[in-house]
């Protein structure tokens, strides 16, 4: 029987670094979207709490490295590397493990790089650690989460992995040249 080997969305493209900033791929074991049914948000939040990861509020991410619950849009949370049991009848849970590319931008000036690509105030006083947003990176719809002082996790549709890496690389080179 043929043995299928999982291929990461950014395989062969990452990692690399320019100046103080590095870009690498983040591989989560699983990605699951959780959309609570109408009137079930509270019950879903209780299940999350019992499982040890609080349900993230709008614009927030909870959990830790490798296991995150990320607010992912209106009425939707993305479980990254995390499995939560007991959501039957309370929420629509959909496996999206192969649907998204996740990268980590890290290092001094990471915010300066994103400022050129994202129409959102990412200043550390406004967009703090644990904050997340659905916005756009150039023309791509994306989820962006600040996971550290100068560390961001960016999620785009898997089909746009190469474009995301390209856009970031161009800007990383430009910012490195100016500093």
């Amino acid at each position: 029987m043929v043995k299928l080997v999982a291929k990461a969305p950014c395989e062969g493209l990452l990692p690399f670094s320019y100046g103080t900033v590095s870009l690498s791929e983040v591989t989560y074991d699983s990605l699951t979207s959780v959309a609570p049914f109408v009137g079930k948000s509270k019950a879903v939040a209780d299940v999350f709490k019992a499982a040890g990861t609080p349900m993230p509020a709008v614009g927030r991410a909870t959990g830790k490295d490798g296991q995150r619950a990320i607010w992912f849009g209106r009425g939707q949370v993305l479980l990254a590397g995390l499995t939560i049991e007991g959501l039957e009848g309370l929420a629509a849970a959909t496996d999206q493990s192969d649907a998204w590319a996740v990268v980590r931008l890290e290092g001094e000036n990471a915010d300066a790089i994103l400022a050129r690509l994202i129409p959102l105030d990412l200043d550390k006083g406004v967009f703090k650690r644990g904050h997340t947003a659905r916005t756009q990176v150039q023309h791509m719809m994306a989820s962006i989460t600040r996971t550290g002082v100068q560390t961001f996790e960016i999620i785009v549709m898997r089909s746009m992995a190469r474009t995301l890496v390209h856009e970031l690389e161009v800007v990383m080179k430009a910012v490195a040249a100016r500093h």
Partner: peptide
Amino acid sequence: FHEMGCGA
């Protein structure tokens, strides 16, 4: 439609 954002 908040297409690039939350989808509302």
